[in-house]
Design a protein around this nucleic acid. Structure first.
Length: 980
RNA sequence: GGGUGAUUAGCUCAGUGGUAGAGCGCUUCGUUCACAUCGAAGAUGUCGGGAGUUCGAAUCUCUCAUCACCCA
């Protein structure tokens, strides 16, 4: 059955992927034939995610390395999986509940909600897996991992032990003192009502305002406020001023102000340091403190300090010993009613008024109300428009609040050093190297990592709280039990462990309760008047928070391999080899994996990190939904086929540079696939694949024809180029080398050269050429397979009965020994000659189909041999009807400038003398320009002295050749001149 | 403000000291036997500006300009 004219990607891709999977081609260790292992961990996409261009790029590169190693016989594992994406997943499920009109998360309760999330995960969590399959990703799906597998409540099919790993690491790090709980300012997302880490915060520039507020000085203090200035801005007049003016972008936080800072050297305010101002609205008396944070040049030089609602102010507050007063709820509404901290030190009447007008108001409503009030009451000094950066949650897109809460932190400073050392010492290499700097810079300035999240979907923190024992022993407990900052913590991997530790601490039995109020209530029964005895167990409750998703994905390399169990896979594949990832998660993920693996198992997780760039649209803009410039890889796969998409991304993957993707480029590489397909089709039509006996790979024939020897050598060169490129992660070099070889060498020349041999050659020539072409095409398929797996696999089975699929074909190892320098020289001469003839014909306007004679004189032996051996090819490809040797070239002919003789086309009568003269002069001018450069160098004694010998030699040879060619052109011009 | 990178053909980009390249686009020609998702031929560059190092610089150094990204 003849082959179709083009490859049908849509039909073949699903069929082939299915065949690979059914045959277990991707399972760990498949096709292994040598002891070395090769392991890549997929950067786990969010379980809520769907495939975008970045994934397509990232996974194409991984797949290339994986397929390449697998074909080379490495014991290969590409470990896939997804992370549970705490906030994102909870968001998706809550939205679905709302859409379906079902009860919300809070109404459902924690357990029920988590059940719903798991149901959602089982139904929709596999989206991205199927999309990766469409791309051709050869992951071992039988090992697909999930960062929540094995968590309590996980349904059937989710029994992995990732949860155990996460909990064990938490407990270990806790026991080592690397994890602690503390009341700190954190980035609070008022939409999701959870803390988030620094990295989950985006700075967004927004139009806002600077409001200047007047805070009256107490005890009659004043300062000299400038009222007049001269042209140079010097103050020329002042007046005593009874209030300080503070400028703020966030007036709504003023109720939490506990101080005003001025620079210690600020002459305007120096005398006020230690005095107080009276906070409007609530009448709190707050001190004026000296702190260098106040910049005299900025605003008025006086800054209101709100330690509970601003990171800088928190620092100032710590230094100056100011109170921190929280005036907001977890939803960023004003929290004034029943807020003892707030009321303390304030005027009770004012407090009551403030509660009446502001309590419960959203932060923006409160801002407006406060400004109105300030304006009405005359303490609004002015408003300046101001454009400034405001932190936003990367998921919720709402402005985050610095918020004072109890959170868990990893004391990163304690585990960062090994991660730095590993890269410094080269045990882990980051490519391209410039990213090492980014890595170092971040780790050297690392902040504590807030790992607790006020969510339900995630690994619940394995810490229980109980009442603190008070002095005197026996059954006496802290009366303030239930306050997280004073309770006794117990950290353990499971309930038995907690019981054991707690019972040891209390010396009597404990019970574990579901909630904090329940535990408080039960323990309340134990607080009896002295002497009374109540033998009920002591109640503990568990910390309701969960861990940051990145805490679990930080354990990806060991967690997916079964740690903490000492599995065979862990022994075999860890440390893994290469991590391929985008630079956007160097901090989120790479750095944390380094720290955590080193802290937990004391080994680097991988020896190489290849950081790839961003895929942008064709104008260089970041793809984003709001800009509408997103290219969906699945649409592209539908239109052009997965191979074309993969090849495009690979060819553009120059290290360290962003990709600007355009569909015309993809179409070009789709055409490349078609080209390969048709080369195979040609071969098939010419009986190249007639051998029907089952085979693995065809054996290389011993060729005698120059053209066959030449293409075998070219194949060897490209194999070396591809391996060399892939070893150095130069994916684009591999793709371009193959493109140039397959199209530029095999299709443009070899297939054309083969035609005269296949059609008119001797039986032996035919046999040899068929065998060579079959071998060369096999090699093309093998070498292209990592980049274009589908079309190559399809051709593999089309062109022979195979014992193994291409995915498991042996990667070749041949090299220089297959290169025949003589054949190389000869074929390049033939190609030059053909190109020269074609060029002359086209420029002289010779009809394309016309067969023309050719003349030659002074042919040297090499050229004669080359002609004799390749006459048929030359004549066919250049449409030359005959070659005649003459003593002198006639005057009216067109010169063919090649080495080894003087060739010409006698086109007397046809030749346009002027056109030929122009053509020759142009060539000559170019030649002379090159010659000038070369001789200039050769005449420079310093060049001869200091340049390496081979460079000098090369330059001499080149100059001689050019000299020769120029002479021929001059002779040709002279002949033309005689013609008039 | 700090850091990193970029600037090469009309466009998108390779090219780390030794003859300036590719793909796309463009112009002309070509459908008889692999492919019009094709073939042949052709045009197109003071390698962002300036200075320096060197026998020799797109490449190394300095500087200026413009742009992009990351961090504050």
């Amino acid at each position: 059955m003849p082959m179709e004219k083009t490859f049908n990607a849509a039909e073949a891709e699903a069929r082939l992927y299915d065949a690979w999977e059914k045959a277990g081609c991707f399972t760990a260790g498949a096709n292994a034939s040598r002891p070395e292992t090769f392991c890549i961990m997929i950067p786990p996409p969010n379980v809520t995610g769907s495939l975008h261009m970045g994934h397509a790029f990232n996974n194409t590169l991984q797949d290339i390395l994986v397929r390449w190693h697998r074909m080379r016989g490495f014991d290969t594992l590409w470990q896939p999986g997804q992370d549970h994406a705490g906030i994102a997943t909870q968001m998706v499920v809550e939205r679905e509940l709302a859409k379906a009109g079902k009860p919300g998360r809070r109404e459902m309760g924690r357990e029920e909600f988590l059940k719903t999330v798991w149901e959602w995960k089982q139904q929709s969590g596999g989206t991205i897996i199927n999309q990766l399959k469409r791309l051709g990703a050869s992951c071992d799906w039988s090992r697909n991992a999930f960062t929540m597998s094995g968590a309590p409540g996980a349904p059937e099919g989710e029994e992995g032990n990732f949860h155990d790993a996460v909990i064990k690491v938490f407990v270990d790090l806790y026991d080592k003192g690397y994890i602690y709980r503390g009341k700190r300012l954190v980035n609070w997302d008022p939409h999701f009502e959870t803390a988030i880490s620094d990295l989950e915060v985006e700075q967004v520039e927004v139009d806002g305002a600077m409001w200047r507020l007047r805070y009256p000085l107490e005890d009659g203090a004043t300062w000299d406020r400038p009222t007049e200035w001269d042209d140079e801005g010097n103050v020329t007049a002042t007046e005593p001023c009874p209030y300080l003016v503070v400028a703020t972008t966030r007036p709504e936080t003023m109720l939490g102000d506990t101080g005003v800072a001025v620079h210690p050297e600020d002459a305007r305010y120096k005398h006020l340091i230690g005095k107080t101002v009276r906070l409007p609205l609530c009448g709190r008396s707050i001190p004026i403190v000296a702190d260098e944070y106040a910049d005299p040049a900025k605003g008025t030089g006086a800054v209101k300090i709100t330690p509970a609602h601003d990171f800088n102010d928190w620092e100032v507050g710590q230094r100056a010993g100011l109170r921190a007063i929280n005036v907001m709820t977890t939803r960023a509404a004003m929290f004034l009613k029943d807020n003892r901290d707030f009321a303390e030190g304030c005027d009770p009447d004012l407090v009551a008024k403030a509660i009446e007008r502001l309590d419960g108001a959203d932060r923006y409503a409160a801002r407006e109300a406060i400004i109105n009030e300030a304006s009405d009451d005359g303490w609004l000094d002015g408003i300046d428009p101001d454009r400034h950066m405001v932190p936003h949650g990367d998921r919720s897109k709402v402005a985050i609040e610095p918020y004072l809460t109890d959170q868990w932190f990893v004391d990163t400073a304690k585990i960062v050093e090994p991660a730095l050392a590993a890269v410094r010492e080269g045990r882990t290499r980051i490519l391209p190297e410039q990213h090492e700097k980014v890595y170092f810079h971040w780790l050297e300035n690392i902040e504590p990592w807030c790992i607790s999240r006020q969510l339900w979907w995630g690994h619940q923190i394995p810490v229980w709280y109980g009442p603190k024992k008070t002095k005197g022993g026996g059954r006496s407990f802290s009366v303030v039990f239930g306050r997280t900052d004073t309770d006794k913590e117990f950290c353990g991997a499971n309930e038995e462990e907690i019981r054991r530790i707690a019972e040891e601490y209390y010396g009597e039995s404990v019970e574990l309760c579901d909630s904090q109020p329940e535990a408080v209530k039960r323990n309340g029964r134990n607080l009896l008047p002295s002497g009374a005895v109540h033998r009920t167990p002591i109640a503990l409750y568990r910390d309701p928070d969960v861990l940051d998703t990145w805490f679990s994905s930080g354990l990806w390399p060991i967690g997916t391999l079964g740690w903490p169990e000492d599995t065979p896979e862990l022994q075999k594949y860890f440390p893994t080899d290469v991590l391929i990832t985008g630079f956007d998660i160097i901090f989120f993920w790479v750095a944390r994996m380094m720290m955590m693996q080193l802290a937990v198992v004391d080994r680097v997780p991988f020896h190489t990190v290849y950081v790839h760039a961003l895929v942008r649209d064709e104008k260089g803009k970041k793809m984003s939904k709001s800009l509408g410039n997103v290219l969906d890889p699945l649409d592209l796969i539908d239109e052009f086929g997965a191979d074309a998409v993969r090849f495009t991304l690979t060819a553009m993957a120059a290290m360290g540079r962003d990709l600007k993707l355009s569909t015309s480029r993809i179409a070009g590489y789709r055409n490349f696939g078609t080209k390969l397909w048709n080369a195979a089709r040609f071969a098939e039509m010419n009986g190249v694949f007639s051998d029907e006996s089952p085979m693995e790979v065809r054996r290389k024939p011993d060729a005698s024809q120059t053209v066959n020897r030449w293409i075998i050598g070219e194949t060897a060169k490209v194999r070396q180029a591809v391996d060399d490129a892939l070893e150095n992660y130069r994916f684009n070099d591999a793709a371009n080398a193959l493109y140039g070889f397959v199209w530029g060498k095999v299709c443009d020349w070899y297939v054309e050269f083969s035609k005269p041999l296949l059609l008119d050659g001797s039986p032996e020539e035919q046999r040899e050429t068929r065998a060579t072409m079959a071998w060369v095409l096999d090699q093309c398929l093998i070498l292209l397979h990592p980049i274009m797996p589908f079309i190559t696999e399809d051709l593999w089975t089309t062109t022979a009965t195979r014992k193994k699929m291409l995915v498991h074909a042996d990667w070749p190892t041949y090299g220089a020994e297959l290169i025949d320098p003589d054949a190389d020289r000869e074929m390049n001469w033939v190609i030059d000659l053909i190109e020269e003839i074609r060029s002359a014909r086209a420029q002289m306007g010779v009809p394309a189909g016309a067969q023309i004679p050719m003349l030659a004189t002074q042919i040297d032996p090499a050229a004669r041999k080359a002609w004799d051996r390749n006459e048929a090819l030359i004549r066919k490809l250049a449409r030359v009807e005959s070659l005649s040797e003459v003593n002198d070239l006639p005057k009216g002919c067109v010169t063919i400038a090649v080495e080894g003789g003087s060739f010409a086309l006698p086109l007397a009568g046809i030749v346009d003398v002027a056109a030929e003269k122009t053509r020759l002069e142009k060539s000559l001018a170019k030649l002379e320009k090159e010659l000038a450069g070369l001789t200039g160098r050769l005449n420079n004694p310093k060049f001869i002295d200091s340049a390496p010998e081979d460079v000098v030699e090369e330059t001499r040879d080149l100059a001689a050749a050019k000299q020769d060619e120029a002479a021929k052109l001059r002779a040709a011009l002279a002949r033309l001149a005689e013609l008039g």
